[in-house]
Design a protein around this nucleic acid. Structure first.
Lengths: 343, 343
DNA sequence: CTGTTAGCGCATTCAC
DNA sequence: GTGAATGCGCTAACAG
């Protein structure tokens, strides 16, 4: 018969009692290096198995002052490049015994502030946030926390500490230049108008700057709803763009997802892509290389951002554990225009 | 000039010293309900701001025996239905102050075992895992942990405790029956052969059972590589299927992603879908409703799984905090065949 | 309304 | 090779 109450987890004392030693000896046996009689250790390990003992890391952290985790905040876990970055961070951390505690802000800096505070209560040894826009209070919390901090996926003008990212504006600009080299002159833009989507806004700014540099026709922008950008948004926006600016030769989208939605909508309406209109995306999502036509996009090396952020964080934590601080670093990751069939 | 060392975080004593009270009074002021002179509280709050104090939850948990988080393990965070489920869990937890600590197993039960142990060290108040396949040791850890446990996304034969999910076999079977009603007789299957992908395997089993029930032609199955299932897999597999079984009328895929990859590959090769061959997916991913043609699939209500799991977990934790246990529950979520253009 | 004492589970330090 | 005392930051329980 099942118990109808839950006993609290066994402690080292419980294990020790069963093995006929003190809690201290159990503590030694469970870590490597301690000098323990092989026979004693064996007894202890047996007792550990029997009672199902699992170390209490809260207690351990309290005394060792190492929580062995870092926090990372990303706008969205779903259908986004950020998930890849998070995976890359996890992979770097794997061998070190440091865990990644993930939070998602849903593209809101108010949520971010709440999450930062919640995370800090758990005393992460470091923190990685997305972008450089934070509430005033969030920024203060981050500064006062006195743990290594990385802002990623962007190049903030006034970073809090470390940065791993790239210029979203430059990346979008590079795509404009690519399209220009391929003979396109009337280039539209879909998305990037929300205050909430810092990177989308930066891409649009880069688009406008590049148009200006090249002396091209004035911007034709279709706003779309709040992030996360979805396929639906692209499908709706392309129709509006064609209505409002039928002469546009190619549409740049803030995301491959909206680009894909736009392309499929065109197919449904019998508008050839890139014949009637070219469509480019951003992010090099999987859908961009399997869609038909394949989608011209900007590859942004999400995994590299994660890897670099992870490694930088490890160095910073290593220093921190020795009571030191490493100088703020800015690591710029590369991006690449990937020309494909859709333009 | 920046310090080149990191002072450790301030404690309640630090705040108290600054405000001219004891640590205990700070503790009271920071929680609501405590009877504190308004004047004192104001002084304390000011001191909190000044020193940038943030509560240490490890210490608080140690004494209150509430860590205020639950762990959830999913196979993959990227491009998967599981991320939606995780989001739904988070949403349910939102108001309660309980956080979700997410881990991803990369479809490996060995990774799952490692993660379970790592999570348990942090003393989650509950745990949600995906599926019913675990290593022997993982299962023992879960049982001995004595915290509420939910297995989701499947209906394990021998559940550890609670279950929130649906029968993947029945869902795949329902799709076979749908296709049969629409006059299809030669139905192939792509995927589901990996031991690692429990749910993929269940879907394939359901497919085979349904064929048998309906007295249809023998299974024609194309194996694809390890999960996570991707668009590439579908693109490769559809070519092999057409080569090996040119008479197949419709191909069922374990995932919308592979279905989409297959459809786009067909488009490239000039094979009409559904004219030359019909293609169905599984999961009702966004791509299924924006692809051209739109993809026939099985909608599986990921959000509902998360919502139910979250609510069940909250009830279990509430009981647990009172020292009680609720009886094991099995919540079966619905699925739905969604007929669209691709078949 | 506020302070003191004790102890959560563990590891550091010092005895033996 | 093992154990006892002490304290990490916090709060429950009791005093005043």
């Amino acid at each position: 018969m099942a118990r109808n109450w839950r006993p609290s987890a066994p402690t080292m004392s419980d294990v020790g009692r069963r093995a006929g030693v003190s809690a201290m000896t159990v503590s030694r046996a469970l870590r490597d290096g301690g000098s323990i009689a092989p026979e004693t250790r064996k007894r202890i390990m047996k007792a550990v198995e029997e009672v199902g003992y699992v170390l209490d890391q809260s207690a351990q952290s309290l005394v060792s002052r190492r929580t062995a985790f870092i926090a990372a905040l990303i706008p969205s876990i779903n259908n986004s490049n950020f998930a890849d970055t998070a995976r890359a961070i996890t992979n770097v951390l794997q061998a070190t015994g440091i865990q990644l505690l993930l939070g998602y802000t849903d593209y809101s800096i108010e949520n971010e502030e709440r999450l930062i505070e919640a995370m800090l209560k758990r005393r992460p040894e470091g923190m990685i946030v997305t972008g450089g826009r934070h509430t005033t209070r969030a920024r203060r919390l981050l500064e006062q926390a006195n743990i290594p901090l990385i802002e990623m996926w962007d190049l903030p003008l006034k970073p809090v500490e470390h940065v791993v990212g790239f210029s979203n504006a430059a990346a979008a600009g590079a795509l404009v230049h690519y399209l220009h080299r391929r003979g396109r002159r009337k280039i539209g833009f879909i998305g990037g108008t929300s205050q909430r989507d810092e990177r989308g806004a930066a891409r649009r700014a880069g688009y406008e700057t590049a148009l200006h540099e090249l002396g091209l026709s004035p911007p034709r922008v279709i706003s779309i709803a709040q992030p996360p950008i979805s396929m639906r948004h692209g499908a709706e926006a392309i129709v509006r763009l064609i209505e409002q600016a039928p002469d546009v030769e190619v549409a740049m989208c803030t995301s491959d997802l909206s680009a894909f939605g736009a392309i499929m909508e065109c197919a449904r309406r019998g508008w050839s892509v890139p014949g009637r209109i070219g469509i480019a995306g951003f992010g090099d999502f999987e859908v961009a290389s399997y869609s038909n036509p394949r989608i011209t996009t900007v590859g942004v090396n999400c995994l590299e951002i994660g890897r670099q952020a992870g490694e930088l964080m490890l160095r910073a934590i290593e220093a921190s554990r020795k009571g030191r601080v490493i100088a703020p670093e800015t690591v710029i990751t590369d991006f690449e225009v990937i020309g494909r069939e859709s333009t």
